[in-house]
Design a protein around this nucleic acid. Structure first.
Lengths: 158, 158
DNA sequence: TAAAAATTTCGAATTTTATTCGAAATAATC
DNA sequence: GATTATTTCGAATAAAATTCGAAATTTTTA
């Protein structure tokens, strides 16, 4: 028995489903939806936060509105030993780097980056990536059009 | 002049920065932080929603808590003509598919998928992907470890 | 540049929600 | 089946959301 096994009942799942869809839903509305007292629902939400089931409440902003129109995936190879993931941690520190995954296969990392344009991506690679140890190669794939981009999980009914 | 050019001033950017970090921040707290009247801040937030600068308020849920431990990137080739993106749209309909990007380069699409395990990924490919027209090949990359995964944008100060 | 128009902000009033906490109900354990 | 722990409830209070007219500010235009 470790901290990993978290029991979520039907009510918890409903809360998560509703909150995933709208993080600013009021506790009162949640309670109405679930036909429970607001205080009971609040208790549950707080527990979900404590248990780190709920990681964060975030606002999705239209990247275009901020002029961030370039999205790219970069597959990287690293000469780093298998034990450490310092390269990944360094990459993760860069704000424009949205995702860093250690992957199976020929490449070591899959990195997702969002910048204003190709010039700023070039900047990033020249000024930031170049300073990170052990990166031996990068293969950049530019996104032409994004059809779907979300991180909504599929929440089971029970 | 089209609907694309949205003017965001310093206050808007501050709101976005705060809300991106915590979507459930109260309007009252926002107002305190910005040293403005709550009513004025509320007005701005509503406008950001209307202008679709704010796309959604969402709750990030720990995938492990829901037993969704498998993440994969799938590079796909499609025989579809360049004009349409029906393949992408069909992929986007699948809940387990979190991202669909049309990419430059040899492959056509980059697809990000999250499922419970490799068996359910196999299921998905056999039962859903196989029904989508024009997919001529897939190359699946399994994620071993995720070091960073977010979609926070870099919001300029001014 | 000065007047007019449009937008933004404010503040006070009202409605709604969040939060607290003791008690009752329910569920789990021994 | 009694005990213990957990969850839910409901009522009371504090806090926040929302509304809206008026003032201030900014932008437009003549």
């Amino acid at each position: 028995m470790n901290g990993t096994d978290i029991v979520l009942d039907k009510t918890d799942l409903s809360i998560l489903r509703l909150m995933q869809e709208n993080a600013r839903m009021t506790n009162a509305d949640l309670a109405r939806e679930l036909e429970m007292a607001p205080s009971a629902v609040l208790e549950r939400v707080k527990k979900l936060e404590q248990k780190q089931v709920i990681v964060k409440y975030t606002t999705r902003i239209n990247p275009v509105a901020l002029g961030q129109t370039l999205l790219a995936f970069i597959a990287m190879k690293s000469s780093e030993g298998m034990g450490s993931n310092n390269t990944a941690k360094e990459l993760a520190k860069i704000p424009e780097v949205q995702e860093v995954h250690h992957i199976a296969g020929e490449d070591c990392y899959m990195v997702k980056v969002r910048t204003a344009d190709s010039a700023s991506l070039m900047d990033l690679m020249r000024n930031k990536f170049s300073k990170i140890q052990n990166i031996t190669s990068t293969r950049t794939t530019i996104v032409l059009e994004t059809v779907k981009e979300e991180q909504q999980l599929v929440i089971p009914v029970k």
